[in-house]
Write a protein that binds this DNA or RNA. Structure first.
Length: 210
DNA sequence: ATACCGATTAACT
DNA sequence: GTTAATCGGTATA
């Protein structure tokens, strides 16, 4: 495949580690790739949030809740969990940890790399730029990800995460409480959101990336 | 059967 | 700074 970029798919072991915060932080700088019917689109991950399963009131799996929607969270690390939010937005998560430990990482923003034309077509936007991958609902639209892909393995050639050995330095990464989880009470204060400081592609107002 | 609500976004003032 | 849009998932009866 001609990509102009060289990168290598992350192995299953990356996702199956016990510390969801470590998995979340290390996903920053990795490349999220989709290839539906030969249309390749990709972007570098620049903002994520960790959801710590049964102990986390902000998680869909809090208290061991298990439904048709969130069932895939209980699968082995390395699969996609995609769900519909506000009736419109498809939110993409990476399931981590071992079977029956429902940890997940929400991908909130990417820096578009490949397939910009395809992303513009999918989003109906006219100008290329950070807006294409900024926000969890926007990036799934740009990459063509939907709830139909929930449960798909991230070893699939159509949907995977890869590394080109690029890494952000620790000093380039900021943390904050997660967005939009005020209903979770004190757990909403946990600093489980990680982002690239000062990056224009990070979601929310400018203060969100400081 | 029915009621409530959200891991958001864009378009406002 | 504020708010309307929008509908599947979930709980309750």
């Amino acid at each position: 495949m001609k990509t102009g970029l060289t990168y290598e798919k992350l192995p299953p072991g990356f996702y199956r580690r016990p510390d969801v915060l470590m998995v979340a932080k290390e996903l920053l700088g990795k490349i999220l790739v989709t290839r539906w019917n030969r249309a390749l689109t990709s972007g570098r991950i620049i903002e994520v949030e960790a959801y710590e399963g049964v102990v986390d009131r902000a998680s869909h799996a809090h208290g061991g809740r298990r439904t048709a929607r969130n069932e895939v969270m209980y699968g082995e690390g390395g699969i996609a969990y995609v769900y519909l939010c506000y009736g419109i937005h498809h939110l993409f998560n990476v399931v981590s940890n071992i079977t029956d430990v429902p940890h997940a990482v929400l991908v909130r923003a990417i820096e578009p790399l490949e397939g910009i034309d395809t992303m513009l077509f999918r989003t109906g936007k006219i100008e290329p730029g950070p807006g294409l991958g900024r926000g969890p609902g926007n990036l799934t639209r740009a990459l063509g990800i939907s709830t139909a892909h929930s449960g798909m393995s991230l070893q699939d050639p159509r949907l995977f995460i890869a590394t080109d050995d690029f890494k952000y330095d620790e000093g380039e990464v900021g943390s904050s409480p997660r967005i939009g989880v005020d209903y979770a009470g004190t757990h909403a204060q946990w600093p489980y959101r990680f982002f690239v400081k000062g990056h224009r592609g990070v979601s929310g107002p400018p203060k969100n990336n400081r």
